[in-house]
């Protein structure tokens, strides 16, 4: 069983890679994938110039840059997974063949997610390099807290997968909102997760939503990995172990909800005959 699942995931990763990248060569594709996150990070640099002539030397901007760089992984995963469902169902109309393959459908979706995560991590690396040299941010290998990174990154990726699964599942029963969901989900979470500003700047009624979101804690942990502390006062007050413990609990909860929701949406889609329904939209 485990071997069959592993094979399904590997096959799905390969298919995902081919679908995403075989229109060009690998270096160009990696650069292509990095253009969007890089543009947003540089956009923040120019935006920050409103209050500081030299954003590269400002620790507040450094915190925003790091938060945004890591948050981009979620953006890439959420929109990538959604696009995978849309393109398989609507454009290439192959979802029924993927669906009747021996491996459970959810595992093939997870395989696609792994490919997207790998590409997104490469983009983060490129973004950090741009932050280090052209923008002059204090990023150095010696300054990275590798232990914290090793613990927080897998949890953050798992949480992102859980949320991505939820929205990918939702797209199985949605037609006309597919594209909007694919592109808009990242924006909603960007607003909520304290990526660009401390969560205390959110209206009071939105703050609990931010604090109950694993991505908020992951972004905070990612900042600490690069030595940035005190950006978000309530989160900054937590010691590392407590932050990681909250991240772990929330990740497990979100992963569980994402998994169960996907299966539920899949069931609904089958019942309603929507699993391979091309809407021509």
């Amino acid at each position: 069983m485990t071997r069959r699942l592993a094979r399904a995931i590997v096959a799905s990763m390969k298919i995902g890679w081919e679908i995403e990248s075989n229109w060009t060569n690998v270096p160009l594709y990696i650069l292509y994938e990095a253009v969007r996150p890089l543009s947003l990070c540089i956009l923040l640099y120019f935006l920050y110039k409103v209050v500081s002539a030299s954003p590269g030397a400002d620790p507040h901007f450094f915190a925003i840059f790091i938060g945004n760089a890591f948050f981009m992984i979620f953006g890439a995963l959420a929109s990538g997974l959604s696009w995978a469902i849309i393109s398989d169902r609507e454009h290439y109309q192959i979802i029924r063949y993927v669906y009747i393959a021996p491996a459970p459908f959810v595992w093939t979706v997870i395989g696609r997610a792994v490919t997207l995560l790998a590409v997104a991590l490469t983009s983060v690396l490129l973004t950090l390099l741009v932050g280090r040299w052209p923008l002059g941010l204090p990023i150095s290998l010696g300054g990275v807290r590798w232990g914290l990174l090793a613990m927080s990154l897998p949890l953050g990726l798992a949480a992102a997968c859980g949320i991505g699964l939820f929205f990918a599942g939702m797209l199985l029963i949605t037609a006309r909102h597919s594209l909007l969901l694919a592109e808009g989900v990242g924006g909603v979470f960007l607003l909520l997760c304290g990526v660009l500003y401390p969560t205390t700047y959110l209206p009071w009624w939105l703050r609990p939503l931010a604090w109950l979101n694993p991505l908020t804690h992951w972004v905070e942990a990612s900042r600490r990995v690069f030595g940035v502390t005190g950006f978000d006062k309530p989160l900054g007050a937590l010691p590392d172990w407590e932050l990681l413990a909250i991240l772990l609990v929330l990740t497990v909860v979100y992963l569980y909800i994402g998994w169960k929701s996907f299966l539920w949406f899949e069931h609904r889609a089958k019942r309603a005959g929507k699993i391979d329904q091309a809407t021509n939209y």
Binding site: G184, G187, V188, L191, L196, Y197
Partner: peptide
Amino acid sequence: ITEVGLPVISLSAYIFIYRSLGA
């Protein structure tokens, strides 16, 4: 509603940045 609502949410994020910077 979805088409106009989601972009407004993204836009709000940028407004909150300026507020947090005291611009």
